[in-house]
Design a protein around this nucleic acid. Structure first.
Lengths: 251, 251
DNA sequence: GCGGGGCGCATTGTATACAATCCAGGCGTC
DNA sequence: GACGCCTGGATTGTATACAATGCGCCCCGC
């Protein structure tokens, strides 16, 4: 019936999950705050059943944690958690790159990745309005890498990790747009992307893995950069879930 | 009240999850079979609410999959999925070993791992009655490795993977006990364990990572071994969820 | 005989009532 | 004055009733 494509299944549960996740990432609740079901029932205009399911689901995603005596609270992350999540993504994407190299059956499979490289090259030097498009292309490149690994298990592991908002490939592209940092980073990222494609094409698994790992370090560096400016920091998805040991800028 | 320790929280949901998981791994349902809520309600003597929660949870664990039109069915795995899961565990445990090496603060932290090595050495040559104890020690070693990585994110990723029954460290120790295979494997595993501890102690991150990866290959080899004998194969946790392309033994 | 449409059943999604549990505050006693 | 018990409220866990939706079967028409 509703095949319009906009909302494939407008179930209450789905709606509550999406809304609640958004609220959490936007910072509507404080880190560590306990969430009472009835409160959410009122705010989300749904019954307890879908709210309950949504809470359970978000707990598995990692943004909530279940309390031993029942109920849930907003999870609090440390900066170190973000760093680790990024590094682990690097490890998993490294494995994806290696798998892709080992399992490549014909060169044409790399077509889409090459297209991503060419398209992102066209966006240089990086401007503010190019940024949205750049993030799209970047996401597409990574998705394609995961696909070429040809491993449902690996895809699952990666997806399980990037449910954490700040762990996704495009989560930390927000660098200071008033400097030439964006252009520099895009040049580096493009070089990595090209190297990964080249390594896969030549079936150089180890090189592909090393490059993909190093590639994730860009996000890590961006994190450091972003930590110097509260304005920038707050643009990270899920920034409100991060407990800062010291105020930003005091580093 | 119920602080006896046997069952910390005898909630219906918990009970249903445990029972249903066990039923699935034991093979009470065929791979690909659709599970109707009401059937489970009758078989598990619980209401639909906890059954529903349990289904949702097992779907996230990976042994069930949600159908687009609602409901769930038993997931079917291929041998390649098991291989991949083991390899990914190797990658993640490799990262754990590297983290442990990089983050070691004092030598004493390795005490428990060393004890595991010594204890498993005592069990050589491997006999049938030693096997249970060996699996325990092996599990303890791996749990300790995860702990020493000091990364909640990494622990989460590993735990998310080994919810798949056949991906756990101790899942494929079942080799033919009538040969000297068990002893040989235990000797190899012990050597790996010692090497990992040594590498961590010396803060040799790369070596620790490589060894932990190679260590997981033992499980992979066991898988090949187990694939020659249906009797053995069926002892793998979740064996009934695996779709075999050809009958076992015909390789 | 075959295809399409409609009706009925089975199954899932949602809401709500009820039960159990936990927590906090206050009162009584030692 | 402090400790402990008890009671009341709030909150979560469970059961079940009701609504909606999809699915298959059967009948009718061509």
């Amino acid at each position: 019936m509703d095949q319009s494509g906009a909302s494939p299944h407008t179930s209450q549960t789905e709606r509550v999950i999406l809304t609640l996740r958004e609220m959490l990432l936007r910072g509507d609740f404080a880190a560590g705050e306990r969430l009472a079901e009835l409160t959410l029932v009122r705010r989300l205009t749904a019954s307890r059943t879908p709210v309950r399911l949504a809470l359970d689901r978000l707990a598995r995603e990692g943004v909530l944690e279940a309390l031993p005596s029942g109920g849930f609270r907003v999870r609090a992350f440390a900066i170190a958690d973000i760093r680790d999540a990024i590094e682990i993504r690097g490890v998993l994407e490294g494995t994806a790159a290696r798998f892709a190299a080992e399992r490549l059956s014909e060169p044409d499979e790399l077509l889409r990745m090459r297209l991503c490289c060419r398209d992102s090259e066209q966006l240089l030097p990086m401007t503010l309005e190019n940024f949205v498009r750049y993030v799209e292309i970047n996401d597409a490149f990574h998705a394609e890498l995961w696909r070429l690994a040809k491993s449902a298990m690996l895809t699952r592991a990666i997806e399980g990790l990037i449910t954490l908002p700040f762990a996704a490939p495009g989560a930390l592209v927000f660098v200071n747009p008033e400097t030439d940092e964006p252009t520099q980073l895009a040049i580096l990222a493009l070089e990595h992307h090209r190297g990964i494609v080249d390594a896969i094409a030549n079936r150089e698994g180890t090189r592909a893995e090393a490059l993909a790992r190093e590639h994730a370090r860009i996000a890590r560096r961006n994190l450091n950069s972003v930590l110097t400016d509260r304005e920038l920091f707050n643009r990270i998805p899920g920034a409100s879930l991060v407990r800062l040991p010291v105020p930003i800028g005091a580093l």
